[in-house]
Design a protein around this nucleic acid. Structure first.
Lengths: 104, 104
DNA sequence: TTGACATGAAACCATTAGGTTTCCTATAAA
DNA sequence: TTTATAGGAAACCTAATGGTTTCATGTCAA
């Protein structure tokens, strides 16, 4: 789950779309694949890359494979963005730091 | 400057590194390339992809090309992240919305 | 005005990425 | 206990990516 694997995982529009779909809850491969105009094996590959980035968790359930979003895995992206956001939103950054300080 | 071009631009570690370098101010191609173990043409290609994503601005200055960070271009990424951050940090999200409401 | 320097441009190369087809395996249901 | 269903795996294809080398061009300085 290196930072690079996360950025790699979110760089593809199909994978970002799958993440959005999984925000509504767990879904099987068949359910996910039915939403896209590509074959199941292609979707499987996308899901594997998402898993390698830690963005989803896959568990077996009978003959199905259920895929669940793992939103925590996006934290490194948020941290990276935080560094640059200081240049375009001082106000929000200040609040963010306040929240983080409060957490500690 | 489609959203996809932004995600594409930030998906490469060299390009993210260049963005960090440019956070300190404008730099010429030569200055940037001297920091990496690859040829100038390779760096030029990275810079072009960053420009296509709107993440940097390039201007001519004599025989040099000066590259400046354009951090605003990261907003779409921030918005995208915002959607998912609601799942892992309700507290921060609440504050963020408060700030945005205050801006309006 | 000639030479050095900063960069652009084009051709090329190997690897990765995103996709397909075909076939195999495991589980559930009749 | 067959049969249908959900998915895995491997081989293959094309295009995009990240890099190189070579050569051309524009601009500054002697």
């Amino acid at each position: 789950m290196s930072e690079q694997m996360i950025f790699r995982a979110i760089s593809d529009p199909t994978r970002r779309s799958i993440m959005t779909m999984l925000a509504s809850g767990e879904h099987s491969l068949g359910e996910i694949a039915s939403q896209y105009e590509m074959t199941r094996p292609a979707v499987t590959k996308h899901l594997k890359i998402l898993e390698e980035g830690g963005l989803i968790h896959i568990r077996a359930h009978g003959r199905q494979r259920l895929h669940a979003l793992q939103p925590d895995a996006l934290r490194p992206v948020s941290d990276w963005l935080g560094f640059f956001s200081q240049f375009w939103d001082e106000k929000l950054e200040t609040l963010k730091q306040a929240v983080e300080a409060d957490d500690a």
